[in-house]
Design a protein around this nucleic acid. Structure first.
Length: 153
DNA sequence: GCCAACGTTGGC
DNA sequence: GCCAACGTTGGC
């Protein structure tokens, strides 16, 4: 399977690219949206991820991460003390899946959403068309464009 | 902090 | 299976 590209959102107050850099890798727990889950289940080790900071001014892509595990059940769905606990999920048939991601790169200056929206070749990004989905697929061309924008092109 | 857009739930 | 009500996300 050819390498694929993704975009994952995080509120920097909760878990920023700096947190990821400090930790090296993390499990992307707490996703409770079926589209986002399905995207994570489609991920493979080595896929690259645009790491997006939402709810900051301006929001935008802060850097790059890499998928470093296959999808596996989100442990927080079985944890009664977790706010992500889901009583309808069972170990035999887990509802929620996640992957681990690892830090790759932090952009010197992030690529802001207004700049992304201003690029005609990025007009079809899920980010632009359906802003709420927290784990999105990105095309290789879109990924490359964002990376070039971060490099100042 | 507001509120539009979207996803989910549940009554019928 | 429809759709109103509700909760959440996330740009502004």
């Amino acid at each position: 399977m050819a390498k694929r590209y993704w975009l994952m959102k995080s509120e920097p107050d909760v878990y920023s690219i700096d947190d990821l850099e400090g930790d090296g890798r993390t499990l992307w727990d707490g996703v409770r949206n079926y589209s986002a889950r399905n995207n994570m289940r489609a991920m493979e080790v080595g896929d690259l991820v645009l790491y997006y900071h939402s709810r900051q001014d301006p929001p935008g892509v802060a850097g790059i991460a890499r998928v470093c595990s296959a999808a596996y059940p989100d442990p927080t769905q079985f944890d009664r003390k977790s706010k992500y606990f889901d009583e309808k999920s069972t170990e035999a048939e887990p509802r929620w899946w996640l992957v681990d991601i690892e830090f790759v790169e932090k952009f010197e200056s992030g690529v802001g959403l207004p700049d992304i929206k201003a690029r005609p070749e990025l007009a079809d990004m899920v980010l632009v068309r359906q802003s709420r989905l927290s784990v999105q697929a990105v095309t290789e061309a879109e990924f490359r464009t964002v990376r070039e924008m971060a490099a100042g092109h």
